[in-house]
Amino acid sequence: MSLPLAQEETGLEPGLPLELADERESIKVTGFWMFLVTDVLIFASLFASYAVYRSRVAQAPGPAQVFHYGPVLLETLLLLTSSFTVGIAIWAMRTGRVRMLFFWLAATLVLGAGFVTSEIHDFTSMVGQGLTWHQSAFLSAFYVLVGTHGAHVTFGIFWAVTLLFQVARRGITPITARKLYTFSLYWHFLDIVWVFIFTFVYLGGKIG
């Protein structure tokens, strides 16, 4: 007597988008969600620290004095728009329009680069005024929380550039589609984190 054997099927599951239709790639998407969980917790720990350190300004100026709302508004506009453009890029990918995908992904990266540039400029001008993270625990927590987000965006830009090369070489396949899709998840995630930074750090600094 033999035991029942499973039918092992390869190939694409019908009715699903390309990046999820291939079993192996779809497992990688699940893995990426798990990675995002860990990243959420990194930011949660940083937000919690910021909440604790917010009032610990020592002899240095507090939130109300150090934040520049002009650049922050610009950064918010750039990043929220880039979340929209990456959405269009994924839609283009799913409908198989490579040139459109390229255009919107590049637009996303330009917006992201604008965001990073503005943030770096903002930070350097703050440091130029003597507001270094050595001055107070509040400034340490601020720079590290917002800076971690900025570093994520920077990493994302370089990541997406390597993806553009891969798509240029291989077109839209289950593998490249999965890579683009996980990038878009990452990008949306950073956008959501920014919403929280904007609300709790910058707007919270205004009221509190």
Binding site: S49, V52, A58, A60, W133, A137, S140, A141, Y143, V144
Partner: peptide
């Protein structure tokens, strides 16, 4: 890099 998270001065905790 001389930040002040857990130092005794500068509001560290």
């Amino acid at each position: 890099f001389q930040s002040s998270f857990f130092t005794l001065g500068h509001g560290g905790m």
